[in-house]
Structure formats: structure tokens, C-alpha cells
Amino acid sequence: MSKKLELINALCGSAPGWPLVLYFHHVHPTLKHYTSITPKDFEEGLCLLLDNFKIIEPSVIRKRCFDWNPKEPSVLITFDDGFKDTYDFALPILNKYGVKAIFFLITTNIGTKSSGLNPWKNYLSWAEINDLHSMGHTIGSHTLSHSALNKLSMEEANYEIIHSINTIKNKFSGDSIHFSYPYGLLPRCEIIFPEDTFAFGTVKAPANSWEKADTNIRRTYLPAGQNSKWKRLMEKWRTQWYG
């Protein structure tokens, strides 16, 4: 993906009055990919966000009640896939600034590791996930196998989503288990989510009110390696919040 296209994708934030939602994948010092950001850059981006937005505690988000939605520009931090490097490198930075996040997990990949040192193939263990939860972070679902849901039948898509949500709900009973779509691709059929589940998209989702589009909430990101443009992004996102 070109840097220009990345910036264009990222520029649109949230609907007026609704939280900006950012998603990250890898936080790793050496991995080179547009979905990866270094720990140093992650801290820089987080500090910029703290200067411009109120951080939302994900544990307070409830579909049946919007009292948690602040009356000022706000942001929710999320991580997709459940890579181990988010625990090793992102977590200490989150803890340093007292920021809580949602970690969306591919449930069949939990605890799997590569035969070498490839961070693409190393995923969080249940012990690490329990640790994240005990620290106040929220655990969400990202399907069973990270399949492109638009290529699956209705039965297959439902199975991927609902069984993944139930796997996490069985571990953390009482929590609202939120969901994010792999690749931002929606299934060809309507999914009946649990009543308190929000479903999050990517930059492919339009910037709509959460009340109107609670099963495809727009998320955006900080384009890796384009730190000089991040301040502009923050200004755009704040302007969009005010409408």
C-alpha cells in the first residue's frame, strides 16, 4: 500500500460526537510492515493522542447505555489478532501512561508460536491474556481463524464469529465481548450478535454514529513511518469530532 493511500485511508476518523477508534497489529522493534509500528513510535503516537483526546476505558462501553460517551474528543485503543509482541512491547507503554485497550483475539491461534523467531506467528498465551484482563484491559473476539467472512456461507460465518465470542465469554463471564472483522470484511449475511456486543470494522467502514451502525464501527490507524503527518491527523480527527 502506498504512503499516500495510507494517509488518505487514515484521515477520516469518527462520526461527530463519537469516539475515534484506533487499531494496531504489531508493536515490534524490527518488524517492517505497514501493520507494524516500533515501540518508540507507539509511545510517540500514544502521547500525541493523550494530548488531543480523552482515552476511553473499554470496560465501561455498554451498548444498552451511552452514558460512558464523553462530551469531548475521545479515543478508544484496540489491537487486532493477539500477537505476543503487543504484550512484550505495547503493554509496558500502555501501563506507563495508564491506558487500557481492547485486544481482539483469533481464538484458535491462542498460544501458538513459530518454529523460529518470526513474530508474525507468535500469539498470546492464555496466561498472558488472563494477565491483560487482570490489569483492566478488555478481551474481544476476532473470529476463530481470521477468515475473510465475505467468502463464507451464512453458517460458516456465524460459526466463526459466535464460537469465537463464546470461547472468550466462557473465560471472562460477565464481560461484554466485542468483535472486530478480519480485514474489515463483513459477511454476506446478517449476524445476530450477543445483545451487548459492538462490532468494529476498519478504515473500510463509513464514519457513522455508533447508535446507527453498532455492527460496523469505523476504526482508523497511525500510518507507520509517517510520524511527521500524525499531528495533522490528530487535528483532522478532532475537527471531525466537532463536526
Rank of each mutant, 00 (worst) to 15 (best):
F104M: 02
D67I: 11
H28N: 08
W120I: 09
I77E: 06
M154D: 15
H133P: 01
S134M: 01
H142A: 02
L46K: 07
N109T: 10
I93Y: 08
E160R: 00
I165W: 01
I37S: 03
I165Y: 04
E155N: 13
T143D: 04
D85I: 03
Y87E: 11
C47S: 14
T143F: 06
L49A: 10
N69C: 15
P92G: 05
Y34I: 13
D88P: 06
P39Q: 09
T138N: 01
N122W: 00
N130V: 04
N118H: 05
A127G: 12
H163Y: 13
L50T: 00
E72F: 06
R64E: 12
A127S: 08
N150D: 14
N130C: 11
I168W: 02
G111T: 09
E57V: 07
Y159A: 04
I102L: 06
F66H: 15
I161G: 04
F83Q: 05
L91W: 00
L149V: 06
S115K: 14
R64Y: 13
F66A: 13
I106T: 07
H28P: 08
I110V: 13
V60L: 11
D51W: 10
L105N: 03
H133N: 12
D41I: 03
W126I: 12
P29C: 11
N52C: 11
H28A: 07
E43T: 08
T143V: 07
Y97I: 05
I55W: 03
H133E: 01
S74W: 03
S153G: 10
T107W: 02
L152C: 05
H146L: 04
S145I: 08
G116H: 07
M154Q: 15
I168P: 05
E128Q: 15
L124Q: 01
V60I: 15
L31W: 06
F89R: 05
N118F: 03
K113R: 12
M135N: 04
K100E: 07
T143K: 10
S125N: 11
F104I: 12
I55R: 01
I129M: 00
S147V: 05
G82D: 00
T112K: 12
C47P: 02
D131Q: 02
H163N: 10
P73H: 03
I161S: 02
H163P: 00
N158E: 09
L48R: 09
F79S: 00
G111D: 14
R64C: 10
S74N: 15
N52T: 09
P39Y: 10
I168L: 06
T143G: 09
D51A: 14
N158R: 14
M135E: 08
Y97N: 05
D131L: 11
P39K: 11
D67K: 15
D67V: 12
Y159I: 08
S125W: 09
E44Y: 13
P58Q: 05
I102P: 00
P70N: 14
L124K: 00
D80L: 08
K40E: 14
T107A: 01
I106V: 13
G98I: 10
G140L: 00
H137I: 06
W126A: 06
E72R: 14
F42W: 07
H137F: 04
V75Q: 03
M154S: 15
D81T: 04
S153Y: 02
I162T: 05
